[in-house]
Structures are given as C-alpha cells and as structure tokens.
Amino acid sequence: MNGRVALATAERVLHQLRRDRRTVALVFVVPPLLLALFRYVFDGQPETFDRVGGPLVGIFPFVMMFVVTSVTMLRERTTGTLERLMTLPLSKLDLLAGYALAFALVAALQAAVTCAVAFGLLGLDVEGSVVVVAALAVCNALLGMALGLFASAFAQSEFQAVQFMPAFVLPQFLLCGLLVPRERMADALEWVSYALPLTWAYDGLRRAVEGGDAALVARDAAIVVGVTLVALALAAATLRRRTP
C-alpha cells in the first residue's frame, strides 16, 4: 500500500467523474428531486414525509454510489486499463483505497446537497441531529460503493452492471423496513432482512431521525462500516492480476 498512489488514483477517478457532466448531474440532482417528489406525493400527510424522508436522505446515496461505482469499475475492466494497472507497481489496496477516497468525497458532497434541500427547502423536520443523518448518509454511500465494486466483477457489460441495481438493491430496499415495518412481514422475510446490510443502515437512520439512543445509532453505523470493509475485501479478492 502506498498512500501517494491511492491519492493519485482518487484524483484520477474524480477527474473522470468531473468530465462526465451528466453523471455529476445525476448524482447531485436526482436525490433532491426524488425527495421533492416524495414531499408532494405526501402533500396531505406531512408526518409521513417526515417519517420516510429522513431515512431516504441516507438511502439515496447508497443506491447512486452502487450504480456509479459498479459501472466505473466495469469500464476499467472492459477497456483494458485494469489489466494495465495490474502490470504496474500498484497494489490492489491502492486501487480500492483510491476509489473509496474519491467516492467518499462525492458522497459527502451529495449528502450535503441532499440535506440542504431536504431540510432547507422541503421543510423536512426531524427530531434528531441533521449532522448525524448526513454522516450516516456518507457511510451508506461507502457501503453502496463497496458493494458496487464487488458486484462489478460479475458483470460483463455495462448493461448487466446496471441490472444489478434492481437485483442487489431493490430487495434490500423492500425489506429494510422503510416501506413496511419488518415485524409485519412474513417471518422468513423478517429473518432475511437481518442479513441484509441496508436493514442496519435504515435502522441507524431511523433512530438518528427520531433522535433515538446514540449508542444504538453507533452500533448500526458500525455494522454498516463492517459490511463495507468485508465487501471491499471481497472486491479485492475479485481483482486478479492473472486472468484466463
């Protein structure tokens, strides 16, 4: 591991993202727009918007980063730049740390923009601390990034990589408890939900929004960070210097 190489990689990834104006627009404009949509869909039930909107602020970054990262890494594989990097003095950890650093920065900006719109313009009202919600949003974005890096190993085309979004993310979204409380699901699903990282991400957000027990929020965040590290290790295992 060499910090400077990881930093160079992070700068390169950010540089590429900056060139891609549309992706930048998607990353920063879509989450606030979706929240605005929720706000007016629940126009007559502001308490529902307050209940759902808070956690959503922290879940959108997870979804966006999953897609952006899996496609970026897939491109690295299909254009041969990954093969080239694997012949150079760059460790897998440098590469993954570079990606993590770049997307953590993007995630922080995204969380800041989304929070500003949600709490400033849309009048979202939460009991808990906005800063904690934003920090959890960044953790979740990194979880999405790590899962995206891992998932990209199983895609052969960008089209497949994009399909992983509904395949990996939608079930977690349905089961995490945001739409229906988990106790009301079929027992089997409730048990499955405990094995899914987004469940813990959601629990942390819900508690933070409600101003709940800080220790439990910290535990949920720790689980999210732990799963992120495991996913990064799995992603590292899928990066092979030698390929068939």
Partner: peptide
Amino acid sequence: TQAPSVYGDLAARENLAYFARILR
C-alpha cells in the same frame, strides 16, 4: 496491449500524468 488501454475520458497528458505517479 493490442487495444489501447488508456482512459478515453481523460486527455493524453492526464493519462500519462496518472501513470507517471504510479511508476513514481
């Protein structure tokens, strides 16, 4: 490699600058 393996969205100079940093 047989097919050019560089970042298409970056300029030649930016590509080289990145790889120069990896090679130190």
